[in-house]
Write a protein that binds this DNA or RNA. Structure first.
Lengths: 95, 95
DNA sequence: CTATAGCGCAACTTGGAGGTTGCACATGAT
DNA sequence: ATCATGTGCAACCTCCAAGTTGCGCTATAG
């Protein structure tokens, strides 16, 4: 059994994945193809990131019809806030 | 310029590095060779991890004499606490 | 002054993460 | 029934992080 913190921090370590969290926070929900428009990579790459985020418990998927919509979980939303706070916090320390 | 969050989460993503944080929290300070006794790897590997933690601002190094002692920074100590809190938090969600 | 303990640097190997392409499957529209 | 849209799966490539080994430098001990 692997430490859940591995999944969590591993997921948060990638800047593209953090951006996905931000986008999901803005939009409420999105599909992989929608997010592809905002990111410099293919749909499959986005899809992999979403899977990684889901494994970490930050994102939930729900297939309706022929599309799969992703939303932030409670934990994911909390981390979206914490990321902003952390950025500001680290800004101050670097000044 | 790379996002400081990359360094931070990248550093925290490795379980060995989190263990190093815990060990430094227990001991107050330690050298790379001392920590090697507690970890399943060579001194150079431990040294690399300490450098990574230092780059993330979690650890500080101070060479005195022929040994280099490492200590947690303020940020590092805060994260040591948060890691425990996060483990407990994720435990509950998994039950 | 010599020996030894501690450290840093550099080269090398390897496994996995991030990304791409290609194809097959399912669902909604015409 | 057909065509288009959205997705998932699998193979492949590339690059870097994690770890090792080997060597050389510095500093304390004898």
């Amino acid at each position: 059994m692997s430490d859940p913190l591995n999944y969590l921090f591993g997921a948060l370590a990638d800047p593209n994945r953090r951006q996905v969290i931000g986008l999901l926070s803005e939009r409420g929900s999105a599909t992989a193809t929608e997010l592809t428009g905002e990111l410099p990579m293919t749909r499959q790459a986005v899809s992999k990131h979403l899977t990684t985020l889901a494994d970490a418990g930050l994102v939930a998927s729900a297939r309706q019809g022929r599309e799969t919509r992703y939303t932030l979980t409670q934990t994911g939303a909390e981390w979206d806030d914490r990321l902003d706070a952390l950025r500001r916090h680290l800004q101050k320390r670097t000044l």
